[in-house]
């Protein structure tokens, strides 16, 4: 009985801690969520440009390596070309929509 109670107590304490952590994290990250997400997206855009540069006629010495990544990034490709202001895929042989 006593150990049950103690167990319950430590659970309550842990739950309190979890809730406090949640509030602290929201307070820390919430206000800058959009700024940081935007910075991350900018980085992503540059990365995508590097990966697909060869296909658009921009020579890329690392194309041997980036080529390998292309199938993995296919799903993100559609979002990227739309963000870049192109409604349709800019590449004839690389269609996603």
């Amino acid at each position: 009985m006593a150990s049950d109670e103690r167990h319950g107590e430590s659970d309550g304490w842990r739950q309190w801690l979890r809730r406090a952590s949640y509030y602290a994290e929201e307070l820390y990250f919430g206000r800058y969520r959009s700024t940081i997400a935007r910075a991350r997206r900018d980085e992503e855009d540059l990365f995508m440009l590097l990966v697909y540069s060869e296909m658009m006629g921009v020579p890329n010495p690392a194309s041997y390596y980036t080529m390998e990544l292309q199938p993995l990034l296919l799903e993100r490709f559609h979002d990227w070309h739309r963000r870049m202001g192109m409604e349709r895929s800019p590449l004839d042989h690389f269609r996603c929509c």
Partner: peptide, 19 residues
Amino acid sequence: GVDYVPTNKFILWGHHFTS
């Protein structure tokens, strides 16, 4: 998930007040 995020009102108050 970036700009438009439904937020708990107490947390939002915290952000708003400290800003």
